[in-house]
């Protein structure tokens, strides 16, 4: 009995080490959205330049991707070719929200790199970003037909994110 007492430290440590092992496989920097499986926040934003405005109700009943971007954001540039590929090759419907960006800067950014978005809303104050829980651009959201947020991807999308994360989910949600 008394001997058992002396075994406790090593047992506790092994448990701890197992947790550490698990923790190593996880990325602590990504936060899950507080809005997963909850309705996407309502918003109505002015369009970019001459383009039409963007509101939540515009994509009711559709499966859509909403991408927050900004011209000042370096990783957004890295992600951009993937977005272009999504729009051109995969024929996905992408909605863009220019986060805390001046419209003319956002416009120049898209003129330079190409415009993958069906529509763009301008969120100059960043309020819609806060409603979505955005903490760093780029962020990409998948919203289902019922208008619920199903996925948030923080940081630039890569080709493997697209193949392994986004496309399977869209398929499952029955993209029309």
């Amino acid at each position: 009995m008394q001997r058992l007492l002396f075994v406790i430290p090593v047992v506790l440590f092994l448990g701890l080490a197992a947790y550490f092992g698990l923790a190593l496989t996880r990325d602590p920097s990504t936060l899950p959205s507080a809005l997963i499986d909850k309705p996407a926040p309502a918003f109505a934003l002015a369009g970019l330049g001459t383009k039409p405005p963007l509101a939540r109700d515009d994509f009711a009943g559709q499966v859509v991707l909403v991408n927050f971007f900004a011209s000042w954001c370096v990783p957004c540039r890295a992600e951009h070719p993937i977005l272009m590929r999504m729009a051109e090759q995969e024929k996905l419907t992408l909605y863009g929200i220019a986060y805390k960006d001046r419209p003319e800067d956002a416009q120049r950014f898209l003129t330079q790199l190409g415009d993958p978005y069906s529509r763009i809303g301008v969120d100059q104050s960043g309020r819609v970003g806060i409603d979505f829980g955005v903490y760093g651009v780029p962020e990409t959201y998948v919203i289902d037909k019922a208008g619920n947020i199903r996925l948030r991807h923080v940081g630039p999308l890569t080709a493997s994110d697209l193949q392994n994360e986004i496309l399977p989910l869209l398929k499952q949600l029955g993209r029309s």
């Binding site: 008394q2 001997r3 002396f6 430290p9 090593v10 440590f13 080490a17 550490f20 190593l24």
Partner: peptide
């Protein structure tokens, strides 16, 4: 670099796990 994390964890297992096992055997 995840390799570093794995290596240090291995080191922890040997150093701490080893000494505490020795403790469990000899300390009583």
């Amino acid at each position: 670099d995840p390799a570093r994390g794995t290596f240090i964890l291995l080191l922890l297992l040997i150093v701490i796990g080893g000494s505490l096992t020795l403790y469990a055997i000899r300390a009583p």
